[in-house]
Amino acid sequence: MNCQKLELLGGGAHGIVFLGQYYTSPPFNAPVKIAVKSSKIEFSDSIWKEGQILRMFQGCPYIIQCFGGDTSVEHGNIVYNLLLEYAPGGTLQGLINSQEGFFSEHEASLYAYQLLKGIQEVHRLGFVHCDLKPNNVLLFPCSCGCGLNQLKIGDFRLSKVAGEEGHHGALLYTSPESLFCGIHEAPKDIWAIGCMVVEMMTGKSPWRFTSSSCNTNDVNKLAVEMAFNKPQIPTGISNCAKDFVMRCFERNPNVRWTADKLLNHPFVARNNNPLLCRTWENHKVLGNRLFKTEKWISKFGLFSTPISSCTCGCR
């Protein structure tokens, strides 16, 4: 077997994520860590769709890479597996929690730059992510020991083609036009990036009303807050950072700045962010380099476990 599931990393309603190990084809025959998102075949539509979208972004250094898919029989169940790049640094949410926010402006601007580069490519190819939030941004620690991270956008389950119907995603990162008018287009992703930048620098959501509870009353109160108030702009940050966040929080989506414009904003265009990121882009991680020798993986039985009999007609 050239692929194994090693341990459980997490999961939710739409799939379980495992740490996996894949052995590349000769002449390398090298083990590479991957993330494997799995679901029983009857519930796998969303992760199959995610794989098809991610296939469009192969080679983009700011979007998690997908190496292919597999349908296997595991312990008597037919399972669909999506093979993804493994992020050893966890999520941006984990990093925010560990630092209680309070990122330096330099660090926050570097991460904002990378988020914008990733979402710029998403929008360029005619897609909208629709669920940008810290839990869906994955970290790859820099190998030079600088303490910074390369960011990649992941979890494209709710993503859509621009102009199609969509979902508003996580409430705290949802734009007003998405929540109240059902408009789920590119400016929605920019609003979410503004929310994340505020959270990085303060450890808190830009909304005054927040709750860890998910009951209906709390959701309704937050919706009212979002309808009649503006998101809270941090006071202890530079005017440049404030201006950047305000451009993301333009209430009119037609006026809100695009990723292209924001990449030229001095908050993210300064501090050698482009230079550092180009260095990362040119430094190919071993796993990615090895996988570049592989074709798109589309197999049956990559993870299959031996079973004595099967009545589903799949073997």
Score class of each variant (00 low, 15 high):
Asn2Gln: 14
Lys5Asp: 06
Leu8Val: 09
Ala13Arg: 04
Val17Ile: 12
Phe18Thr: 01
Tyr22Trp: 13
Thr24Trp: 07
Phe28Pro: 01
Asn29Gln: 08
Val32Ala: 07
Val32Asn: 02
Ala35Pro: 09
Ser38Pro: 01
Ser39Asn: 14
Ile41Lys: 05
Glu42Asp: 10
Asp45Met: 13
Lys49His: 14
Gly51Met: 03
Gln52Pro: 00
Gln52Ala: 08
Gln58Leu: 14
Gly59Lys: 07
Ile63Val: 09
Ile63Leu: 05
Asp70Lys: 03
Thr71Pro: 04
Ser72Met: 11
Asn81Ser: 15
Glu85Ile: 04
Gly89Trp: 15
Gly90Arg: 11
Thr91Val: 09
Thr91Gly: 09
Leu92Tyr: 06
Leu92Ile: 12
Asn97Leu: 06
Asn97Cys: 09
Phe103Cys: 03
Ser104Glu: 13
Glu105Trp: 13
Ala112Leu: 05
Ala112Tyr: 02
Leu116Asn: 04
Gly118Ile: 03
Gln120Ala: 05
Glu121Lys: 03
Arg124Trp: 10
Phe127Ser: 01
Val128Met: 12
Val128Phe: 07
Val128Leu: 08
Leu132Asp: 04
Asn136Ser: 13
Asn136Ile: 03
Leu139Tyr: 02
Cys144Gly: 04
Cys144Arg: 03
Gln150Gly: 02
Gln150Asp: 04
Gln150Lys: 11
Lys152Asn: 13
Ile153His: 01
Gly154Gln: 01
Asp155Thr: 02
Leu158Glu: 03
Gly166Gln: 11
His168Arg: 12
Leu172Asn: 15
Leu172Ser: 14
Tyr173Glu: 04
Thr174Asp: 09
Pro176Asn: 03
Glu177Tyr: 01
Ser178Lys: 02
Phe180Asp: 00
Cys181Glu: 15
His184Tyr: 15
His184Val: 06
Ile193Gln: 02
Cys195Ala: 13
Val198His: 05
Glu199Thr: 10
Thr202Ser: 14
Lys204His: 15
Pro206Met: 11
Thr210Gln: 15
Ser212Ala: 08
Cys214Ala: 15
Asn217Tyr: 14
Asp218Asn: 13
Val219Pro: 00
Asn220Val: 14
Lys221Thr: 10
Ala227Asp: 10
Asn229Ser: 11
Pro234Trp: 07
Pro234Leu: 04
Thr235Pro: 01
Ser238Pro: 11
Asn239Leu: 14
Lys242Gly: 02
Met246Gly: 01
Met246Cys: 13
Arg247Thr: 08
Arg247Trp: 10
Arg247His: 14
Cys248Arg: 00
Glu250Ile: 04
Arg251Lys: 07
Asn252Phe: 08
Pro253Ile: 15
Val255Glu: 12
Lys261Cys: 08
Leu263Lys: 01
Asn272Pro: 02
Asn273Trp: 00
Asn273Leu: 02
Leu275Asp: 09
Leu275Ala: 08
Glu281Ser: 14
Gly287Trp: 00
Gly287Cys: 03
Asn288Thr: 05
Asn288Glu: 07
Leu290Trp: 06
Phe291Glu: 02
Lys292Glu: 13
Glu294Arg: 07
Gly301Asn: 09
Leu302Thr: 12
Thr305Phe: 08
Thr305Ser: 15
Thr305Arg: 14
Gly313Leu: 05
Gly313Pro: 02
Arg315Gly: 12
